[in-house]
Computed example of a mutant assay.
Amino acid sequence: MKILFLAAGSAATVYGMTPLATAARSAGHQVIMAAPRNVLPDIAAMGLTPFSVTSTPIPHFRTKDRAGNPVTVPDNPVEGRLFTGGWFGRLAAASMDPLLGLAEDWRPDLVVGGTLTYAAPLLAHRLGVPYVRQTWDGKDFDGIDPGATAELRPELAHLGLDALPEPQLLVDVTPPSLRHTHALPAQPMRWTPVNQQREPEPWMLRRGERRRVVVTGGSRGLNLEFLRDVVGKVGALGVEVVVAAPEELAAKLRAEADGIRAGWIPLDVVAPTSDLIVHHSGGVTSLTALHFGVPQLSVMENRDNASHGAALDRIADFGAGLSLQPHERTAERIGAACEQLLGDPSSTARAQAIAAEMATMPPPSTVLGLLEELAARTA
């Protein structure tokens, strides 16, 4: 069977879809993962065949309409969700011709699209093959799809559709206890931490004398000045601060703060020996922390995708961490939140409860069997 996976313009979306794609490849299926060209090296690093859907920089779709005119990022949650759907819709529109070209030479039997990869249902409908939607993290997409539908009216009309095709199967990696109360019925799948690797140093594999706090902005990193202030505030709590960041940023931080551990540090390696993870509201980072039962502090950078906050707020409501809004994004507030979490053993207990729940969810290999049955029924 040929399975086409569609990721988006960040490494996190690639990591989120890699476990199911790898399970398919390991089972003997042919797999291609399509995404914007900027993340093709991340796909290749996972051992998967990459295919570029566009060379246009991702910020272009977020900041400009199809005619190239600037667009304004909303500052309220409802419009923010619609805005997110709109710019992912523009990405989908730009992806269609390359994907149809790929299908002429390599026709997939099934298309698996990530949470907001709206080209997936359009392509699957055009080819007459099953469409599966897989969440790439625990964030909601409620209220986002209508924005994509509005943006993709021309493409939908061309296909004789009034709305985006529904998936034949929705696969959700969100732990059941953290799913939205109005979430659609879905096939659960166990979260498997994935990120690019490097040879571990001994300290990463064992706990030190002090409690360890990991600060990360994901694969993109954080602003150096802001990161410097955060490290100072958190370090003042008497803990070991580890900064997981791109090497270019980490080198600058090491030059200013003698002895600090900073660099490309695989989160799945260091998380098991950590006591707290501070992150940029990253969905992959969030689920990785939960997988290892580590409390987390998420700090939202903006509100244009309010679904991030809703999902992370549920983690806070469960007691497994805290979530700060953009207006609270100061080094002082982050330091205070870290102190609060480190002083509350119940946050670790609650995170570990989620980890135990996640361990009972079906693995990707089990979910793959459902995909095989779906493709066989429509062959």
Rank of each mutant, 00 (worst) to 15 (best):
F292A: 02
S323F: 11
A45T: 11
A336C: 03
R377L: 11
H327R: 13
K2Q: 06
E339R: 09
T135F: 09
P363V: 15
A356C: 07
I354F: 00
A93H: 10
A67M: 12
P345R: 01
D317I: 12
R303M: 15
T273Q: 09
S219K: 08
R314T: 11
V230H: 03
P200Q: 11
D105P: 06
H280V: 07
L371V: 13
V230Y: 02
A94W: 10
I334V: 02
L312T: 13
R210S: 11
G101P: 09
V231A: 08
S26K: 10
S307C: 13
D105T: 08
H180C: 08
P165F: 02
I58R: 11
V234E: 00
S55E: 15
W264G: 12
P19S: 00
E151R: 12
A379I: 14
D258K: 14
V269H: 06
R220D: 15
M96Q: 05
R212E: 04
S365T: 14
I334Y: 00
R179K: 05
I354V: 06
Q196G: 14
L20R: 00
R329W: 04
T149C: 13
Y15L: 03
R377F: 07
G259E: 02
R333F: 04
F141V: 15
P59E: 08
G113S: 03
E166A: 13
V231H: 03
H291I: 00
